[in-house]
């Protein structure tokens, strides 16, 4: 099964760092990056296929469409079976973490920057 990773973050440097980190692992073969939630949503809607496994690394604080709004949109068509969202935010706010825990599609919450240990956590949780 194809695995596709999306990085959605309005901070270019942050995207670059996440991208470099992910590419260290053979698990993340295909990586698409988006600077805003709206464009990411549009593309995902178009190409969404049940034969592909989606890993979405999602920032919270973004202009136009923030992480929460993006999640609200994709839950209409994306299935938990093949879609896993991991929040990657500079926030360490307890309220954000609690909010993420209550959303089915969200499988994890990481504080930036992304680290190697996060990669193994992503794979573990995907396996479950």
């Amino acid at each position: 099964m194809k695995i596709k990773t999306l990085i959605i973050d309005d901070d270019e440097i942050s995207i670059m760092l996440t991208d470099i980190c992910l590419k260290d692992s053979p698990f993340f073969q295909v990586i698409d990056t988006y600077l805003d939630g709206a464009t990411a949503l549009e593309n995902l809607k178009k190409e969404y296929s049940e034969d592909t496994t989606y890993v979405i690394i999602l920032d919270i604080n973004m202009p136009l469409m923030n992480g929460w709004e993006f999640l609200e949109e994709i839950k209409d068509f994306a299935s938990q079976k093949n879609t896993s969202v991991f929040m990657l935010s500079s926030s360490t706010d307890r309220l954000d973490i609690e909010k993420a825990e209550n959303i089915d599609l969200v499988k994890g919450f990481f504080s930036k920057p992304l680290k190697e240990e996060h990669l193994s956590q992503i794979q573990e949780r995907m396996a479950n």
Binding site: D11, I13, S14, L17, T18, I20, C21, D24, I60, N61, S89, S90, S91, T92, D93, L95, D96, S111, K112, P113, L114, K115
Partner: peptide, 27 residues
């Protein structure tokens, strides 16, 4: 203020940490 700072202050800080991590790992 606390919420804003949690997001705003940590953004460049997280970036710094990420940049330094990668540099020190020799990547």
């Amino acid at each position: 203020i606390a919420w804003t700072q949690s997001h705003m202050v940590r953004a460049p800080l997280a970036r710094l940490m990420g940049l330094v991590n990668l540099l020190s790992e020799g990547k």
